Simulated scan of single mutants.
Amino acid sequence: MRILAIESSCDEFSISIMDKGKVLSNVISSQIKEHSEFGGVIPELASRLHVENFHWVLLDSLQQSNSQLEDIDYISYTSNPGLIGSLIIGKLVAQTISTYLKKPLLDMNHIEGHIYGANIEQKFQYPVLALVVSGGHTQIQLLKESLSFELIGTTQDDAVGECYDKVARVLGFNYPGGPVIDKLAQNGNDKKYKLPISKNDDSYDFSFSGLKTASLNLINKLNQNNEEIIIEDFCASFQKTAIDTLMIKFEKAIKEFKPNTITVVGGVSANQSIRSIFYKVGEKYNIKKVIIPDLKYCTDNAAMIAELTNEYLVKDKK
């Protein structure tokens, strides 16, 4: 059962080929360089670059997997959520291959793909509690069994990755600014600057607009008063507040739903501090499995879509 999966929801175009649950290739065309000069992703540019790059991504993925197009049994692609133009390019490529090969075409959800990206190298023990953290999404999802996605909580405004990038831009960092903040935070005093934890209530929902606004106001105030901003300390203080905001709600969910597996997925799951804290939380609550995906499966990639597709196909055959 050989799957060709396409992920094109934002500024990466990726194709992965999987056979019997094993990733044979996972090729990603990144556009960070092109978008960095604008301080963020430009949707029109992203879709145009997908058109320019998809052919070599396809050829490279076939070559790395030692496959021919005729070897493919199923084609899948990310249908939502994401940038409309980018999603359309991926869908058109997938439809063209499916029509040419006369093989089944399956549409997949991007967030579900991120969650099952954690299932590639280690396998879930259900129930699973997943923290989804990226530039566009911040959610807690509960899976009582395979593919049974239940949204427990979500951001009411900014996603955590979006908050990172907006604060980073004001600090003068290039896009993407989240990894820069994370790196500088490792050597900073996280108690130097006081920032608020938003929506600290009984719900499982998040809010990051308050943290973003408070951070920008503090930066402006310090600049107006000609006070030096100790960058490492500011990054450490901001990052601690952002992670505390996430973990307060996530730990609350652990206590209620008592998962056997916890995982953190999405682009922000590459953050060093989040990865470290997640293992500590697993130990604190005696969680059987703590799964943090390899860095290559954290950002947008087609292997996670292939794994999700494989899970659906295996379940359908049972």
Rank of each mutant, 00 (worst) to 15 (best):
L151I: 07
P127G: 10
G117C: 08
I140T: 13
I84W: 05
G113D: 05
V133F: 09
V133A: 15
I84A: 13
P127K: 13
I84T: 15
S86K: 09
S134E: 09
G85C: 03
I97C: 14
S86H: 11
H114P: 08
E121G: 00
T138H: 03
F149I: 15
T96L: 01
T99S: 09
L105M: 06
G117S: 05
G153F: 04
G90M: 11
G90P: 04
S98G: 08
Q125C: 05
D157S: 07
H137Q: 12
F149N: 09
Y126A: 15
Y100H: 11
K123I: 11
V133D: 14
I140V: 14
G136D: 04
E121Q: 15
A130K: 05
I152Y: 01
V133M: 12
S134F: 01
H114N: 08
Q125Y: 00
T138N: 07
E150R: 04
T99C: 03
K91A: 01
F149M: 06
A94E: 09
I152Q: 06
T96Q: 00
H137M: 02
L105P: 05
Y126R: 14
P127L: 12
A130Y: 07
Y126Q: 14
V128M: 13
A118Q: 10
T96M: 03
N109G: 06
S86T: 04
E121C: 03
I120C: 02
G85H: 06
V133P: 13
T99R: 01
H110D: 10
I89K: 10
L131H: 10
D157F: 00
D157E: 05
K144H: 04
G113R: 07
S98M: 06
Y100G: 07
N109T: 04
G90F: 14
